[in-house]
Amino acid sequence: MQRKAIVIGATGLVGQHLIKQLSELYETLIVIARRPPRYINASMRFYQTNDFDNLPEIFASVGADRTTDAFSCLGTTKKQAGSDEAFRKVDYGYNVTFAKLCRDKGVENFFLLSSMNAKIDSRFLYNRVKAETEQAIEALNFAQLLVFRPSLLLGKHKGRPLESISQRAFQLISPLVSESLPLHPISAQRVAVAMAMMAQDSYERRKYHTAPVLERLTIIENKQMLAMTRAK
């Protein structure tokens, strides 16, 4: 039985690294995005959309089923979206719609990129919406939901000058900062590697029964991602 993965957010900071990782694990890689990803290989099936409101129509032909693992790296900021409502539509609306469509197709395993500070009672809209998205997808009762909560992501953020400033400041002091600190920034590539590692680990647990299966909800915190992707 061939393994399949379906991904949204594949052209973002983490997503562009993730599809490279997943292409080595899955025989078929389904990508839904507004523009073609920079990385393309023979196993990829790309579905272009100008509007994620069309996700239900796209899902009619993607061929997702119980052999498919779903990954979402989709996200934006209020500044990029233009308003609170537009931001929520992307980070909550599109992610939850994608998850529901996956669940309706029989997908059992969902991998969600979230944020370290996702809290339902946060005074910051970004953090509240991340937490609300986690809760809504958890309520869909996937066999396994893995939520990844990175700290500040290191990489080139188009249109995010404040994060770029933070990254440059961190690079100056990074030799003095231990990765054991919970708020230590992490590169987008390492987050992608961690997501792929957890997908493979989950698969091997289920297939070979060499270890207990993961809990229905598994949260992978920033510190754990740093540890599992640290160069030996």
Rank of each mutant, 00 (worst) to 15 (best):
A5S: 09
V191S: 11
L176T: 09
V14S: 14
G15V: 12
Q135Y: 12
Y47P: 08
A231S: 15
T28N: 01
R35M: 03
A194D: 03
K78G: 00
K223P: 12
L101Q: 10
D51Y: 05
L146H: 03
G82S: 01
R123T: 02
L154I: 00
P175I: 03
H157C: 06
A231K: 15
R45M: 02
A10Q: 14
E24H: 05
N127W: 03
A231C: 10
S115K: 03
K156S: 03
E221S: 05
R230F: 02
V129R: 12
E132A: 12
F110K: 05
D51I: 02
L181W: 11
E179D: 13
K89F: 00
A143N: 12
L101S: 13
A42I: 14
S115N: 04
L22T: 09
F124K: 11
A64R: 13
H184M: 03
K20F: 04
Q80A: 04
S151R: 07
P175G: 00
L183N: 06
L145Q: 06
K100M: 03
Y126C: 13
E179P: 13
E132W: 14
E215F: 10
F46H: 15
I186C: 14
V96M: 02
H209W: 08
F148P: 12
A196M: 09
S164W: 10
G75A: 08
L181N: 11
S83Y: 03
R230G: 06
